[in-house]
C-alpha cells in the first residue's frame, strides 16, 4: 500500500522535475536509435519513457542507464514529439540521489582518476551529474 503511493509520488515527481510529458511518446524509437550510450543502457531511452508512463519507478531507480546517459541531448533534438527522454532520465537520477543519497562518484575515488591533462570542467561536470 505505502509502496504503491510511493511509486505514484515518484512518478509524479519525475514528471514535475523533468517538465516532460511521457504521454506524448509515439514509441517510434528514434531517441534510442540516436543514443550514443544505447549499448550501455539496460533500459533504453524509449523504454525509459514507457516506464515513467507506467509508473514502473522501482526498475528505473535501479537502472544503470541513470549513470550512462551523457546529456548529449541527441534524443531531445531528434524526438519528433518533443518528449525529452534525457530530462526524464535526469529526473529519475535526481530522485535516486536525493532519496538514497545514492552517489555514483565519491571524492575518495578522485585521486586515482586524475591525470595531468584532465580539465577542471570534467571534474566539475562529473560531480554535478553524479552527486547530489
Amino acid at each position: 500500500m505505502s509502496n504503491v503511493s510511493k511509486t505514484e509520488r515518484q512518478a509524479a515527481m519525475i514528471r514535475e522535475i523533468s517538465g516532460a510529458n511521457p504521454a506524448k511518446c509515439m514509441k517510434c524509437g528514434k531517441c534510442s536509435a540516436t543514443c550514443p550510450a544505447f549499448d550501455e543502457m539496460d533500459i533504453k531511452p524509449h523504454q525509459f519513457v514507457s516506464y515513467v508512463q507506467d509508473g514502473n519507478i522501482e526498475a528505473l531507480a535501479a537502472s544503470k542507464s541513470l549513470w550512462k546517459c551523457l546529456s548529449c541531448f541527441a534524443c531531445i533534438e531528434r524526438c519528433p514529439r518533443n518528449v525529452k527522454p534525457a530530462k526524464l532520465i535526469d529526473a529519475a537520477r535526481q530522485i535516486v540521489e536525493r532519496e538514497k543519497g545514492g552517489d555514483y562518484l565519491s571524492p575518495d575515488e578522485i585521486p586515482a582518476l586524475l591525470d595531468p591533462e584532465l580539465p577542471q570542467q570534467l571534474l566539475v561536470s562529473a560531480f554535478r551529474r553524479y552527486r547530489r
Binding site: P36, A37, E40, K68, L70, S71, C72, A74, Y104, L105, E109, L113, L118, L122, L123, S125, A126, R129, Y130
Partner: peptide, 19 residues
C-alpha cells in the same frame, strides 16, 4: 556533431574511448 562522451570519461574510459 555526435557526442564525445563528455563526463563519462572520468569513470568509464573504455566507453568514452570507443566513442
Amino acid at each position: 556533431n555526435e557526442c564525445c562522451g563528455g563526463y563519462i570519461s572520468l569513470k568509464e574510459k573504455e566507453m568514452a574511448t570507443r566513442m
